[in-house]
């Protein structure tokens, strides 16, 4: 089953918003193929009837009361912004949904 192609890596990079260069694609494709080949061992247990563990602790129902806590000031919120305008985060044009 394991094995990953250059095309798959390119697709994954797009999903992950990484503008990989051509030589990087080749380099990573080879390395990832090795890694996936090795870690694919886990599927040995795929058919075993054991519950998956998503959380290392058996905690449930950790909730907070619906009480307002102080927010950051807008200046603090925007303090790391690469660009801002009108007290808002200024970002390049957004494609897609209208």
């Amino acid at each position: 089953m394991p094995g990953i192609t250059r095309e798959e890596v390119a697709h994954l990079a797009r999903l992950a918003r990484l503008e990989l260069k051509g030589e990087e694609l080749d380099h990573f494709a080879g390395q990832l193929d090795d890694i996936i080949g090795a870690v694919a061992r886990v599927s040995e247990v795929a058919d075993q009837d054991v519950p998956p563990t998503s959380h290392p602790l058996p905690l449930t129902n950790v909730m907070r009361a619906d009480e307002v806590r102080p927010s950051l000031t807008p200046a603090q919120a925007l303090s790391g912004a690469p660009a801002q305008e009108q007290q808002r985060f200024k970002v390049p044009q957004i494609l897609g949904e209208d």
Binding site: I4, L12, V42, S43, V45, A46, V50, P51
Partner: peptide, 24 residues
């Protein structure tokens, strides 16, 4: 990239899902 792969539909059960079983 590896994580994006492991969570992708079609691979999730074999990889991420199995890894969580190993965790158990």
């Amino acid at each position: 990239i590896l994580g994006t792969y492991a969570l992708s539909s079609g691979y999730y059960d074999a990889y991420y899902g199995s890894a969580q079983k190993v965790r158990t």
